[in-house]
Simulated scan of single mutants.
Amino acid sequence: MTGKFIVVEGLEGAGKSSVIALVESIIQTQGHKTITTREPGGTPMAEAIRHCVKQNWQETVTEETELMLMYAARAQLLANVIKPALADGKWVIGDRHDLSSQAYQGGGRGIQQAKLDALRDITLQGFVPDLTLYLDVEPEVGLARARGRGELDRIELAGLDFFHRTRARYQALAAADESVITIDAMQHMEAVHQSVKDTLEHYFSC
């Protein structure tokens, strides 16, 4: 029996970490083995790529470079971790996946959809998550939460307009895909977690 791939998405400060821990706990209570991943990252090579993506360089990082690095890291994670775990019957809980590139690089950076589609076809070859939980938060609130965690990285410093464009693309993509469930992350954490529990309860009952 193959496992399932559940992804948690959202802007910085949306509360992904606590939701991922909750999702993992719920799935384990159903008797499934789990692993968690993060993007970019999750393998030695993908973590090195993550460092390249996140750090502030003394040169211009082009939008195309950022995009290709994201998909290079994703390809490594998919081949070396996600697919083997699923084949072994484990449930994989992902901190971000392809929806992030569609939202951040497509919406935020404004990269043409044709370029995104080409890289997605090469690296994912039709692979998609079984369920995605999109934690929707206003950029001003999310970034304020992120600043509370410490110094912001290169992408987190992209500015409010960037994050408003990213959020708008997230919302549009979620509305168009029934496998993406939007969770209001502006609620108190207890209410967010209850929404997640309700969503997973429905998912397990189907």
Rank of each mutant, 00 (worst) to 15 (best):
I6M: 08
I183R: 09
I181V: 15
P40V: 07
S179P: 00
V8I: 12
I35A: 02
D130N: 15
S18Q: 12
L116F: 04
M186Q: 13
G42E: 04
E178G: 00
A146V: 06
Q171K: 14
M68W: 04
D161R: 00
P84L: 13
E63C: 08
E12A: 08
T65P: 00
E201C: 00
Q58K: 12
E138L: 13
T65E: 10
S179D: 11
P44G: 01
F204Q: 09
A73S: 14
K197D: 11
G41R: 00
E39M: 00
T43W: 02
I93F: 01
V196Y: 08
S18C: 09
V19Y: 12
V128R: 15
E178I: 02
S195K: 10
V81I: 15
P44C: 07
Q28F: 04
D161G: 00
K4S: 14
V53R: 00
C52M: 12
T166G: 12
T132L: 04
Q58H: 08
G42I: 03
Q105K: 10
S18R: 09
H164A: 10
L86N: 06
L173R: 11
A48I: 09
Q187V: 01
P129H: 08
G10C: 06
P139Q: 13
V23Q: 07
E156Y: 02
E59M: 06
R169D: 11
D136T: 08
I82R: 08
A48P: 02
E24G: 02
